[in-house]
Design a protein around this nucleic acid. Structure first.
Lengths: 214, 214
DNA sequence: CCCTCCATTTTGTGATCACATCTGGAGCCA
DNA sequence: TGGCTCCAGATGTGATCACAAAATGGAGGG
């Protein structure tokens, strides 16, 4: 049998879920975008049934908002909510980084540095979605080493909720260079500097979002 | 119109969701319990459609586990997973408590003390589910004052995942008296002692779960 | 006594339909 | 122009059905 895993396999509702989740997390949909069951079903060539299940799942994770009448949109977050989600990131992610620290062998840090140069490429291309995607890949590469799947899942849920907002935010800040905190994270990892790593991750996680709320 | 809110109102899938979620969070179902769409539908007098949506939502929150073949059971957590969830609680809940501290007026603390005596009653009745319910009410009463809905939702998700395990755990520890950490929390609130509150909440949150893993 | 195999039953998945409700805008009046 | 009513189309909800895959349980053989 040897696990085929043909990338687009499995139940239709799960395929829909993964596809939509990825698009939302990476900021491919703007905040406030309306989605309909029949519309999504038409786009993916399936009936409403699997679409409803995928939507229900995404709503449960906060990736989508549900109006009182059942209409589904991407979330348009208030500033208070954005600050709160940033606070959650600054609680979870330093902990994940510190747990990964003893397991972060040099090859891993090299890989993170490679992702950093990929981020720089996305910046010069002005590709918001690509920037978000590679930025999250930088963080996930480190956190995977923490051996803490529940905590990582929770962090990803927060990323998901911030996805559409991140896209809108990216347009405002006209970034021109790689965030310096990523370099600080890499050096702290190389030096085995736990307090420095905590600070660098916390700073990186809150930097972009503070200016929006301010 | 004046929002009727007849307690059992709204869409069937939502009613199912709330009901099952409450039962799971409060430990009314043992770990590893199997649930079927047709079975739940029969119990609640609805078809499979709304049941599927409620299940999908609960699975997304980690309240239920989904096997590779789509079978649904209450989660049977490994010790590693339990420790990890306890670690998440010890990150989120002290923060919630500290945020609530400046808003915790005396009447609120009185109410928490009243809940404490209710917990003591559940203990003498040997009512595991009642104990879990009132214990969570103690925490939620405080955290609601933190004005941090996203963080509270995240904490509740962790409670939900631990629900069935808490039930199994309760049987092992044969509690005879009120956890002393609840008293410490109340005094720290009265004294406005932020570091003390942090410590007391962290201790309360990890106390029961450590002995299971140990 | 334990294991294997096969038929039966159970179970999840997805499509389709009927229905109640909501949305959005045209049309109208002040 | 501004605000209101009202209706046609769009939308979410739930029931039912057909189907394939998986679990179940018992017969048969080692």
């Amino acid at each position: 049998m040897l696990n085929p895993l043909p990338e687009g396999a499995g139940a239709a509702h799960d395929r829909l879920y993964r596809n939509l989740r990825s698009r939302i997390m990476h900021g491919e949909l703007p905040p406030g975008e309306a989605l309909t069951l029949r519309g999504i079903g038409r786009d993916y060539g399936v009936s409403m049934t699997p679409v409803r299940e995928a939507m229900r799942r995404l709503v449960a994770e906060g990736a989508l908002s549900l109006s009182a009448s059942g209409r589904i949109t991407t979330p348009a977050l208030s500033n208070d909510r954005i600050e709160e989600l940033a606070a959650i990131r600054s609680l979870l992610e330093p902990e994940l980084a510190v747990r990964a620290l003893p397991r972060a062998h040099p090859a891993l840090v090299d890989r993170m540095e490679a992702i950093n140069t990929a981020i720089a490429e996305q910046i010069v291309k002005h590709d918001a979605s690509g920037y978000i995607r590679t930025n999250l890949e930088f963080h996930r590469t480190l956190y995977l080493r923490a051996q803490a799947p529940a905590m990582l899942a929770m962090a990803e849920t927060v990323w998901l909720q911030l996805g559409p907002t991140m896209r809108a935010l990216y347009g405002r800040l006209n970034r021109t260079e790689l965030p310096k905190n990523h370099r600080l994270i890499v050096s702290a990892l190389r030096a085995g500097d736990e307090p420095g790593l905590r600070l660098a991750v916390r700073a990186d996680v809150t930097q972009g979002l503070r200016l929006l709320a301010g």
